[in-house]
Nucleic acid binder design. Structure first.
Lengths: 136, 136
DNA sequence: TTACGTGCAAAGCGTTTGCTTATCT
DNA sequence: AGATAAGCAAACGCTTTGCACGTAA
């Protein structure tokens, strides 16, 4: 909470109820909701508009409080930033999203960028998979 | 050409001029054009509509002739399928897309999926990087 | 000839924006 | 008070769709 307030002040942002509420929803989320789902979770008692949700999410993303993911289904999915990096596996049957962290990938990918003469800023890795024993 | 005609027939698709033209554009492309860019490249002499472009691209994607990529800029980018798998590096300054192939990533990722109890169907990896010497 | 493809125009969907009013500092 | 945020409604960009006509098989 205070860490959020701090973040806001650091960036000259106002500390509004709307932002607090959206942030709470995001912090409580264990999944990867889209903007409309966040809007739903905020509920009507707060009277937030969908446009406010979007603006807030964009602001948060700029400030680095949330990350916007794109799992290929058209809409953006949001997630509060956490300490550890992680990637996602999409269960194509249920749509469920699993998270994983494989340190080896990071270094591998960084090396690839370097080999091409680039400095890696970020990368996106998503696995699409189905439940079951492995076999091609 | 004949390989395309063959693909069409295999899947009960008609062998129309529109499809031929779109396929030609895609085969000649060395980059990753979006639907509108393909529309532009087709040119007006063929009188193809943008909706036809989209429908054709979707059909091709189903049949496995093209792949649709999503580099995070909203629109889909298309590419003819090629034999070898490859991933992309996006130069965030110029928007240029580089391709690379790192076999190690494939196996790593497959192992990750397996560890989570899944069978890997596909994965998406995109690097965002800027030119320059590497350094954190 | 008949099923499939195309043009055209309109709708769909997620997201953004202009403007006015409300609110934080 | 002054700057920033929220509400609202309208627009936007990409993509899809319904329907009538056209064309490959």
């Amino acid at each position: 909470m205070d860490r959020f307030e701090q973040r806001c002040r650091e960036n000259g942002l106002k500390f509004t109820p709307a932002r607090r509420v959206v942030l709470e929803v995001i912090e409580q989320a264990t999944d990867h909701p889209d903007a409309f789902e966040i809007y739903r979770r905020v509920g009507r008692q707060h009277r937030l508009t969908l446009s406010t949700i979007y603006r807030t999410l964009n602001t948060f993303a700029e400030v680095g409080v949330v990350v916007r993911h794109d799992f290929g289904d058209g809409r953006g999915r949001y997630e509060g930033v956490r300490h550890e990096r992680h990637d996602h596996l999409v269960d194509v049957e249920s749509g469920k999203i699993l998270e994983f962290d494989e340190a080896a990938i990071g270094s591998l990918v960084k090396a690839v960028a370097a080999r091409l003469g680039y400095r890696l800023l970020d990368y996106r890795l998503e696995l699409f998979a189905e439940r079951g024993l492995s076999s091609p």
